[in-house]
Amino acid sequence: MAVNYASKYASEIAKRFTANSFVKPNTSGKLDFTGVKTVRMYQLMTVPENNYKRSGSNRYGDPQDINDVVLEYTMERDKSFAGVVDKGDAKDQTIQNKAGQWLNQQIREQSTPNADKYYFRKVANFGHCAKVTEAPKKNTILDMFADAQVWFDNHLVPTDGRIAYIPASMFKLIVTSDAFFSLEKLGTKALTKGDMGELYGFRTIKVPDTYLPKNCYFLCVHKSATELPYKISESNMHKDAPGISGALIEGRYYYDAFVRGEKADAVYAACAQSAVIEDVEIGGSSGAVTLTCASAKLIKYTTDGSDPRFSANAMIATSGGSLNIESGTTVRAVGLAYAQWGNNNTDEGKFPGAVVEQTIA
């Protein structure tokens, strides 16, 4: 007989995952994957403003079509686990209690850390990668956070809801720096409780060094900009399965991490300059446009004004190859550090360049 833990304990499992995650409570949670693994959203594109003309026709300027861009999000991380709770006691209630305890521990020690680490890897690849020329030191780390604040301010990211994920080693540099400790109350609190509160307007969350990807020193996000949907697809307890004295517990869940395309500027990863690939160079002219980025594993581009990192209309280009694009078209392109995202990604520790654009002559 099998007890379906997915239906019986799904809400409790979700609570446990959220409670144990550094990330889940600080994400938007507004992408609705109910009953599906893929969600499509539509983003309207704005048009430039004109100077109003007091005479003649088209006083407001030439009307332009208002287009929308399709943003597609698909959960692709499909994971499973299996464990055995030995009978040890003939009471069914005891077996069920042990199975529940084991499932809770499995989520806390395996599922949750793996999802958090994946979140940091993926999010760092889909926001702004700031090039840091030298590894942070006690006398430079606070200036780097000030740069993150400037980026958020310049891109009109709301001040409420800003979050900074700081690895333990970076936290140490901050709290032992003279500039930080000179703020008497804040410095004393950090040393006694390991809590920095806010730093340059960011609510700080300390995470293990192994959570952030290699060559990423810290990650700043706005709560509304990222998602970490997580679903228990299947979790069953099989009593007295063949060859087992006790209960066989099998589980399957899927999840993914996303940066919301319309809010990508609200993600800031401080990365080693050597780990960030160069920006795409857009060259040529009408009918023979070239996109060049030798170190990129993949070049994506769009011709409808949308962000190639997120748009369902994005196309793939070969570095140096010729593209038949008409004059007057605005090309946006980005060089990515991976050939495809997912389990086949072998480029952890590398990050994409900036999205560049150019109107073709």
Rank of each mutant, 00 (worst) to 15 (best):
T226M: 14
E227T: 01
E227H: 06
Y230T: 02
Y230D: 01
Y230F: 15
I232H: 10
I232N: 12
I232L: 15
S233K: 11
S235N: 11
N236V: 13
M237P: 07
K239Y: 12
K239G: 03
K239H: 09
D240Q: 13
A241C: 09
I244F: 14
I244H: 07
S245P: 00
G246I: 11
G246M: 15
G246H: 08
L248C: 02
I249G: 00
I249Q: 13
I249E: 12
E250D: 10
E250N: 07
E250C: 10
E250W: 04
G251D: 05
D256T: 00
A257P: 01
F258T: 02
F258H: 05
V259E: 11
R260E: 06
G261V: 11
G261A: 04
G261Y: 13
G261M: 09
E262R: 07
E262V: 07
K263A: 10
K263M: 15
K263R: 13
K263L: 14
A264L: 04
D265I: 00
A266H: 11
A266C: 06
V267P: 08
Y268E: 09
Y268F: 15
Y268L: 12
A269W: 12
A270S: 15
C271V: 14
C271N: 10
C271L: 09
A272F: 06
A272E: 15
Q273S: 14
A275Q: 09
V276C: 08
I277V: 14
I277H: 11
E278P: 03
V280Y: 15
V280W: 15
V280S: 08
I282M: 12
I282S: 03
G283E: 11
G284R: 07
G284M: 01
G284A: 00
S285V: 04
S285G: 05
G287P: 05
A288F: 08
A288K: 07
A288G: 06
A288C: 05
V289N: 01
V289P: 05
V289F: 02
V289H: 05
T290V: 05
L291H: 13
L291E: 13
L291S: 06
L291N: 10
A294Y: 03
K297I: 01
K297W: 10
K297A: 06
L298N: 03
L298D: 02
L298K: 01
I299S: 02
K300F: 04
Y301P: 10
Y301T: 00
Y301N: 00
T302F: 14
T302W: 15
T302A: 03
T303A: 11
T303N: 02
D304W: 15
G305I: 12
G305V: 12
S306W: 11
D307R: 03
D307W: 07
P308I: 05
P308S: 03
P308V: 02
R309H: 07
R309T: 01
R309Q: 10
F310G: 00
S311K: 07
S311T: 07
S311Y: 14
A312C: 00
N313L: 14
A314I: 11
M315R: 12
T318C: 10
S319D: 02
G320R: 01
G321P: 04
G321Q: 12
